[in-house]
Write a protein that binds this DNA or RNA. Structure first.
Lengths: 192, 192
DNA sequence: TTCGTCATGTAATGGGTTACATGATTAC
DNA sequence: GTAATCATGTAACCCATTACATGACGAA
């Protein structure tokens, strides 16, 4: 019984934290949240829901009985977070993992930032910023050393660097605003 | 004997077109070309090289015999494009496939633009532009309709739209310069 | 009544990684 | 001599997709 986690589990737990839902709805929200890229299909979602159930992080209940009588549509399976699920979610949002994991889960973690504290947010943002800056440096040195004679290949890398730079700038902005929010909170606490 | 293709095959053929290479070198160039994301490991590369050999698109030859005597390093397996490989490469660079394929192979195709003609380049660029613009619209409407109460989720989408807009602008610039290049060529042909 | 969307799933496949195994060559 | 990098591979696994199968509900 290996970890089996991945981004999807985190995303599901995060969405179910807001409100209980059935699979179909879950998928729509998921794909709205993550954009057309990174869209998940049912073949991924439903099995994942079952493993989450098996882990005891969520419970499933059919609406067959109750909602049907009062004009409910059809038997749907509604999933809700358990206490264990809530704990697991909090842990996943906060914990630091290997760079690869933090990278691919960044957007999901960011989307659920509202459920975390400033310290956590800053850790995640700064970690991301660091990795993006590293990549940018790697690209830069690569570009200068290997005199790419090919115009198009060079242009591709230039554009990649541009996009990366944007990302870094964006992160810088976010980090700063989080920091000011934190100091404000600290000051308020001090004067109280 | 299904297609078995994927981006990697295209990238390998494109790199081998420039010059014959052995696997290790190939991987380095590949990862330099595509950046730290989309990096391939040996577990992917070597099997792929074998299937390409089996398809007859490349040939492998050990440097054991010849290069060794004249101070060569060690037995390396050098791959080169066959005539069939060259044809296949040209076809892959030119042909239009399903949107998903064109999307994930875009950067590789772009990197090898120098090996194609203006018409092909314009087709690829315009196709990409269209799909990116579609996504942008989807995001935009999503943002306006679903009054996202969550600040962070909204910010994430805003940033995604920003990056997409950059991409579209970039493509617009490229398309225009390709177009002017084409008309110039046409004019020159007309006046000759 | 038919068509689109809601709703839940399974089986086969695919494309890729990680970890492992091996050994030669180069630089210190 | 020993560490890093060059160089080639294999086996196990993982995440996710595609295509398929099924069926109810609402609107045209």
């Amino acid at each position: 019984m290996r970890s089996r986690s991945s981004v999807l589990e985190l995303a599901i737990l995060g969405l179910l934290h807001a409100s209980p839902m059935h699979g179909y709805e879950l998928r729509k929200r998921l794909n709205a949240l993550l954009g057309p890229l990174r869209a998940f299909s049912y073949g991924t979602l439903y099995p994942c829901l079952r493993t989450l159930s098996a882990k005891g992080l969520i419970t499933s209940s059919s609406t067959d009985d109750d909602a049907r009588t009062l004009g409910g549509k059809r038997a749907r399976i509604v999933y809700r977070l358990t206490k264990a699920g809530n704990i697991a979610l909090e842990a996943m949002l906060g914990e630091a993992g290997p760079a690869s994991w933090e990278d691919e889960s960044f957007d999901v973690r960011f989307a659920f930032f509202a459920q975390t504290d400033v310290e956590t947010r800053l850790r995640v943002l700064e970690g991301r910023r660091l990795r993006m800056a590293e990549r940018l440096d790697a690209l830069r040195s690569n570009l200068t050393t290997s005199r790419t004679e090919d115009q198009y290949a060079a242009e591709l890398q230039r554009h990649g660097m541009d996009q990366l730079q944007r990302e870094v700038d964006w992160l810088d902005g976010l980090i700063e605003s989080e920091r000011t929010a934190r100091t404000k909170r600290t000051r308020r606490a001090a004067t109280t």
